[in-house]
């Protein structure tokens, strides 16, 4: 095995072995994220091709449907949750006790839940206004793109809950820290996607 050390969390007292084990796992997760990026890329492309007069098929458009205030709140909650997620990782790195890390993860979950709640409220209002996904190609691709991000966030919330359980049960195991690293990558990645959605869907839609 070629030993290259992973430059992330201090994974154990004996560093070497744990780092060598973390390297392929974390790299593999990066590769998965690249693949997931393609998934989102295709949905972005589909959205772009349907964000036209023809794609809206005479149905409601961004100007009638988007609530930029709510979107701003969602963006704030999600970006703040990335900060708390990073603080959880730092708490593990600087050995502030698994309680501190769990606290930051709970904060991350709360902010994520707030994001998801606001997003669902927006969906609900749009559907109430007759803007259902079967109304037009544009709305289909809107719900698919934003909805897939929302599903990722939901999966992330479940993952965060599992991480809290793992930090509680086996805080010192290298595997737990590896998983925390991966969770962090995943959560920040979703931020990145959200910035794309904010720019392409909401800001460009209202521009």
């Amino acid at each position: 095995m070629i030993h290259r050390l992973y430059p992330g969390l201090n994974l154990g007292p004996a560093h070497g072995d744990d780092h060598a084990e973390a390297e392929p796992v974390i790299f593999g997760f990066w590769v998965f994220l690249m693949s997931d990026l393609i998934t989102f890329g295709i949905l972005f492309a589909t959205y772009a091709t349907s964000a036209t007069t023809m794609g809206r098929a005479g149905g409601p458009g961004p100007a009638e449907l988007f609530n930029l205030g709510s979107v701003a709140l969602q963006t704030g909650a999600l970006l703040a949750s990335s900060l708390t997620c990073g603080l959880a990782a730092l708490a593990v790195k600087h050995r502030l006790g698994s309680g501190t890390a769990v606290g930051w993860l709970i904060a991350t979950m709360l902010l994520g839940t707030m994001f998801l709640g606001l997003e669902l409220r927006d969906f609900h209002q749009m559907i109430g206004a007759g803007a259902t996904p079967d109304r037009s190609a544009w709305l289909s691709s809107y719900f698919a793109l934003v909805g897939l991000h929302g599903l990722h966030i939901s999966a992330g919330l479940i993952w965060a809950a599992v991480m809290i359980g793992l930090l509680h049960r086996q805080p010192e195991e290298g595997r737990t820290k590896q998983r925390l690293l991966m969770f962090g990558l995943y959560w920040h990645f979703l931020d990145l996607i959200w910035i794309g959605i904010l720019s392409v869907v909401f800001l460009a839609g209202l521009a």
Binding site: T46, T49, S50, T52, M54, G55, R56, A57, G59, P133, D134, R135, S136, A137, W138, L139, S140, S141, F143, A144
Partner: peptide, 21 residues
């Protein structure tokens, strides 16, 4: 999956009508 959404939930990604392509 987009085709499945078209078929099951009535989305319009690839349909003939309402902007599908």
């Amino acid at each position: 999956l987009m085709l499945a959404l078209d078929r099951v939930l009535g989305f319009h990604f690839f349909t003939n009508d309402l902007g599908g392509n």
